[in-house]
Design a protein around this nucleic acid. Structure first.
Lengths: 353, 353
DNA sequence: TTGTAGGCGTTATCAC
DNA sequence: GTGATAACGCCTACAA
């Protein structure tokens, strides 16, 4: 069926040219006479010849391979974001002619060791970083070693301007997301809209909180913001537990920093509120849980982000100047997905969600 | 900081031996005098030398790289299984000295094309197949081309014995899972326990159904099984919609083929049942949704499966006889995770789930 | 025990 | 426009 793999030499012999001409026909078509080029390309097609990546890599020092760390999804709910990202990234890389190699690491230091290893042994061309945070040792290391990379997530430094960062990154505009979520609740007539955030914060949660704050201030309700906002751990139970305090402070609707918290809060509200009052809660990340349960949520365009990351990275790897390709720093606007509550104790036959 | 990458030659020169000796010290230590070996290894450590995968691959025709298709997670809920599997697989492969390369494909044919491509250009050593089904063209193709692979999922053929299959596979014992789920409900005093399954079935759902059937028959309730069982699409809404009919037939508890269906059914039961009757529903796959909502579910040991798959595959790739390594065909028992319903309209402050 | 020679498949360089 | 020559870094013989 499929022949033994042909090589440049075997192919060249079979059509009576030198192996160089075959290589040229493939890599520098203009340097070879149209007639012979056709002859070569035809033979290439017919033989199903594919250049060996290893040999090419040995010669060119480029592996056409990118690295990505698979982070242990602590929370299965939010892990879904990584899943979607990974998918889009795989496809985008594939389309751009790159392969994607995975590695897993428990912390940043271990990741650095893996990157170092992969760089040495497999000659990876570049890396995609996720979950960047203030004082990230990985970006420092990569820059120091002149390793090409792009990050999903802006550099969350409090002192430096992320848009001045030396490395490209793509991020989601969390503030814009919560701002539109808050706006949506305002439109529905809510005034005392609370914010449920993360306790140990590293920038990302602050960003989301600021969108809520902005919307509230724009609506002239900026006075008592601290009163309307709480921070907790990121899980369902914590979300439920936070509800009581917020209700006591007159909160009638809630913008949450994550779907886990939103789900917890929603369930709890459902339990304590009178049946005719549908809880008004918006989550963040638009995870499958939100979809399953009928929870409104802010949907970050992760797939788009993945594609853009590959775009910047491959542009950089092609050796093109940073100035003329895709933007080095991109902030993507999320979309608000509005749903009618479902699967929470009320009969809603076959909703369209 | 880090020097320019040393090579066998540069290293050999620096300590005054031939490059061969270095190679031997590394690959065949017994062939080199302890004294020199030590000297070489010391130099290796100090220089941070790592053999180049490309060069080695070119010579040995082994890439130490495995391929895995990333399937588009149709249902975000069940996609979580793939996520966990991928994780464990990455780690296991890493530990076994293999790298993992991802590719994405929309269907089996496209996957075959990708495999073919990767085989030619990147010389992948083997593949991990997921989602096998009856008449799977991929297994046929791989066998025909003598490509090493292991599958997550048994060959779902109706005619042939999966345990006679020529390729190794690891699978979850779905029947055992639903059987224990049914047993659990029987212990709680339920008799008319329904089964909610998939409509277009390709073996996997049948397997799960058979466990329920077995348990019911063992309990002497085998008479009206058809009446107690339904099949639908795999989504939350379908699960909810199926409830009415089952209730009409006197069902008091439900074993479901997936968490999506279980969630839908649960919510619907919650709505129509009197408040003091907690719905008795068990799902399958133990997804984050089940955890978040407090739904009992059958938990497949995916991480374990991943490790075993790498074990068989690397055993095979090491050229060891199939007889003496890990079992070629393994069926893994899932565990039942029992939860108290949560997040569904009742106040359960801080449950331990 | 150690060293020498050759080649894996490709591309860069430089003659012709 | 085309083809010879020389690497890239490694490993597997075989010779010393």
């Amino acid at each position: 069926m499929t022949q033994k793999k042909p090589t440049l030499v075997s192919l060249a012999e079979s059509i009576g040219v030198s192996r160089q001409t075959v290589s040229n026909a493939l890599n520098a078509p203009q340097r070879v006479k149209p007639a012979t080029r056709e002859r070569v390309l035809k033979a290439v097609r017919e033989s199903g010849y594919r250049p060996s990546a290893a040999a090419r890599q040995l010669r060119t020092r480029r592996s056409m391979d990118l690295g990505l760390r698979l982070t242990p999804a602590t929370d299965g709910i939010n892990g879904a974001v990584q899943d979607r990202f990974l998918h889009a990234l795989t496809e985008a890389a594939q389309d751009a002619g790159y392969r994607l190699t995975l590695y897993s690491a428990r912390d940043d230091e271990e990741e650095i060791r893996h990157i170092d290893e992969l760089l040495h042994v497999a000659d990876l061309d570049g890396f995609v970083l996720t979950g960047t945070h203030a004082g990230d040792p990985r970006t420092a290391w990569l820059q120091e070693h002149a390793v090409p990379f792009a990050a999903f997530g802006r550099p969350w430094s409090r002192t430096e301007d992320p848009f001045a960062s030396a490395h490209p990154w793509v991020d989601i505009d969390g503030a814009a997301g919560t701002e539109s979520a808050t706006g949506f609740l305002l439109e529905q007539g809510h005034r005392r809209i609370g914010f449920l955030g993360w306790r140990p914060d590293e920038g990302l949660g602050d960003d989301r909180r600021s969108g809520w704050q902005r919307a509230m201030e724009a609506a002239g309700i900026g006075g008592s913001l601290d009163e309307l906002s709480t921070a907790t751990d990121d899980d369902v139970a914590a979300g439920a537990a936070a509800v009581e305090g917020l209700l006591a402070r007159g909160v009638t609707a809630l913008v949450c920093v994550s779907d886990s918290l939103a789900l917890g809060a929603f369930a709890q509200l459902r339990a304590v509120l009178p049946a005719e009052r549908e809880p008004a809660v918006v989550g963040f990340d638009d995870t499958p849980v939100a979809a399953a349960v009928g929870l409104s949520s802010v949907a970050p365009p992760v797939a788009d982000a993945a594609r853009r990351i590959i775009a910047v990275l491959s542009h950089m790897l092609a050796g093109r100047p940073a100035g003329e390709g895709p933007q080095q720093h991109q902030v993507l606007k999320p979309a608000l997905v509005v749903r009618t509550p479902y699967a929470l104790g009320r009969v809603v036959p076959r909703p369209g969600g």
